[in-house]
């Protein structure tokens, strides 16, 4: 009971802080806090979706950035074609409406994840880690080699996707959009992991043989989880492209996958909300350490090693106790 109250307190405080961030940024006259806040919300979506795989399903995907970047490129490429009224592959016109573009980004990533997952899930353990990594690297090199869409340099576009009632250049409004998407995504994920499907998924992590014995088809359940999680990353990637009005192959690089895993574990794997704290800690630490020294990674590396070695339940475990 006490634990539940602590959960609610930590959760409530975090969201209150995030909700009041724009006012805080104005009061402290630090406008870049707002961009940091949007970045945190976006990474939190990607990290929470990865947590479904790492923390609940026990599937160590090392290619999550592949889907994150793919979602971003859907936004970028559609905006590119909308700008010069050309067609993608000669058939698809460019689009800039968020209510069309974002679902397309989710659908494209989900389809890619279905194909990649179907192949990768035939392996397990370290081979699964390497298969997911390999496919993400393939996507990375694909976008590096597409000169039409900027290749190495990435692809910039002028306007964010149009949302009803919201001015495209309003950064505060966009921050609240990210926050709202994060909240909806977390609620949906919470329901998912507590549903029958979520229970089966966690059962598979603990003992695959027993689950198979009671009639579960492990492959299909895992493939569904992989697809859902990757679609979440695609959504986050679409938001990220909108925040920066730019996508580059860097967003698909394997170090980005590593960063997302760092957020999950820093926040506490298997807790969903931990992903928010992990993303906040990662982005926050990065910007604080980067002000202190350009060599911020020299501190970030050891912090990460210590988190893995000592604080295994992450920040969420530290604040909210056992789950």
């Amino acid at each position: 009971m006490a634990d539940n109250r602590r959960h609610a307190a930590v959760l409530g405080l975090t969201f209150l802080l995030l909700l009041l961030l724009p006012q805080l940024a104005t009061a402290l006259s630090k406008p870049d806090l707002l961009t940091l806040g949007s970045q945190i919300a976006i990474y939190a979506i990607a990290a929470a979706s990865l947590d479904l795989l790492i923390g609940y399903a026990g599937m160590s995907s090392f290619g999550h950035a592949g889907f994150f970047g793919l979602g971003g490129y859907v936004v970028g490429i559609l905006a590119f074609h909308a700008a010069d009224n050309s067609l993608f592959l000669g058939i698809v016109p460019g689009l800039t409406d968020a209510w069309l573009v974002w679902p397309i980004a989710i659908a494209v990533t989900a389809l890619a994840a279905l194909a990649i997952g179907a192949l990768s899930l035939r392996t397990s353990g370290v081979s699964f880690i390497m298969m997911t990594l390999a496919f993400a690297e393939m996507l990375y090199f694909l976008f590096v080699s597409l000169k039409t869409y900027g290749g190495d340099d990435g692809l910039g576009f002028r306007r964010r996707n149009a949302l009803p009632w919201i001015a495209p250049r309003d950064d505060v409004a966009f921050y609240y959009v990210c926050l709202a998407v994060l909240a909806i995504f977390l609620i949906a994920m919470r329901h998912l992991v507590q549903s029958r499907f979520g229970m089966v998924l966690q059962g598979l992590r603990q003992n695959e043989r027993r689950m198979a014995a009671i009639g579960v088809a492990p492959y299909r359940v895992r493939l569904a989880a992989f697809t859902i999680a990757s679609a979440g990353a695609g959504l986050a990637g679409a938001l990220n492209a909108n925040l920066l009005r730019y996508v580059s192959p860097d967003s698909l690089h394997w170090t980005m996958s590593g960063d997302l895993m760092v957020m999950v574990v820093l926040g506490g794997a298997g807790s969903l909300y931990g992903a928010v704290l992990g993303a906040a800690a990662f982005v926050g630490l990065q910007s604080v350490l980067a002000q202190w020294t350009e060599h911020w990674m020299i501190a970030m590396g050891p912090i990460l090693v210590c988190t893995v070695l000592v604080a295994r339940r992450g920040i969420w475990g530290l604040l909210a106790g056992r789950r």
Binding site: G258, M300, G301, L304
Partner: peptide, 11 residues
Amino acid sequence: HMDQVLATFGL
């Protein structure tokens, strides 16, 4: 494996 990947990523 996950912990190993992360700690060595930190390294």
